[in-house]
């Protein structure tokens, strides 16, 4: 049924409002950081003997402008490249891996969901194992993946893609399955009355009605894919992305305390970028759908 508040447009306005809010929140966080640094105790503080109050010295809490200035510094061991350009290169690597992982994870996730929606038995048998699979720490899994990759003779980066896919398929599976099973009974009867087969019903009815359910799953999956790649980079050597940068730069924390934050910012920005891509694809997938404005 249509709701009186459904609107078709407003996408651009909503995007603009979100961007403004995001920048404002970022500014507030920077102000709060500097404020605490100004009034907090230099060497931290104890409450009932526990060291809880964070130190505000320059090593632990560098000034916001120092962190930003770090991006313009020459990167050690990278010729005459600046930090920002090195980090950009790392981010590009991680991004490609995460995107590949997301694509593979989505394909597997949707495939599993369709399989489970088709056969109840499969859902009952498989779903618990999928849940268990997500409780395995990635760090424990990474070496196994490397061994398998080695025996298959695949290049090293495939480990990162595999682990990103491993993290991202699960939210896709759960959300897609939910969507495929949430079709109104009358719509199913309608397709039945046309003598439409299971596959036709899937393509014409179940899949399109599952899309609104899949979007939140895709958002989770996108950020999970980035985490998957970063953890792989940290756990296994030889992959040069933002995960590697975080470890590499943290070794310079004594001489350049702000450099770690530069790497962390790069990782965060990458996660946001992935998220933004998903929001864009959401706008595409949900075009022409009724939207409840709240």
């Amino acid at each position: 049924m249509s709701s009186g508040t459904a609107t078709r447009g407003g996408l651009v306005e909503r995007a603009a409002r979100r961007t403004v809010l995001f920048v404002a929140a970022l500014g507030l966080a920077a102000v709060a950081w500097e404020l605490y640094k100004a009034i907090g105790p230099e060497q931290g503080g104890d409450i009932f003997g526990w060291r809880i109050i964070p130190k505000t010295n320059d090593r632990v809490m560098p000034h916001v402008w120092e962190m930003l200035a770090e991006f313009g510094d020459p990167a050690i061991g990278s010729g005459d490249q600046k930090v920002w350009s090195v980090l950009l290169g790392y981010s590009w690597f991680t991004f490609r891996m995460a995107l590949a992982g997301l694509v593979v994870g989505t394909a597997i996730g949707v495939g599993l969901a369709v399989f489970m929606a088709r056969l109840r038995v499969v859902e009952r048998g498989l779903l618990p194992y999928l849940v268990i699979s997500q409780t395995i720490p990635l760090i424990a899994l990474a070496p196994q993946v490397t061994v398998i990759r080695g025996t298959l003779g695949l290049p090293q980066w495939t480990s990162a893609v595999a682990l990103a896919a491993f993290l991202s398929f699960f939210p896709i599976t759960v959300s897609t399955l939910r969507g495929l099973q949430s079709v109104p009974k009358a719509s199913l009867e309608l397709m039945d009355s046309y003598a439409a087969g299971w596959w036709t019903t899937l393509v014409k009815l179940r899949f399109p009605s599952a899309i609104p359910y899949m979007v939140p799953g895709l958002k989770l999956a996108a950020t999970a894919a980035v985490i998957g790649v970063i953890v792989t980079e940290i756990t296994l050597g030889g992959l040069r992305g933002v995960g590697f940068a975080t470890i590499d730069y943290s070794q310079k924390v004594t001489s350049q305390p702000a450099s770690v934050y530069a790497a962390v910012f790069a990782a965060a920005a990458l996660g946001l970028f992935m998220f933004g891509l998903v929001v864009l694809s959401e706008a595409f997938m949900m075009r022409n759908r009724p939207r409840e404005t709240t």
Binding site: S187, L190, A195, P208, S209
Partner: peptide, 19 residues
């Protein structure tokens, strides 16, 4: 008759596809 689509059907909810 169903296979031949000899009938059309309408329900209480219009059941139109949103997309």
């Amino acid at each position: 008759a169903r296979l031949d689509q000899d009938y059309g059907m309408a329900f209480q909810k219009s059941g139109l596809f949103d997309w």
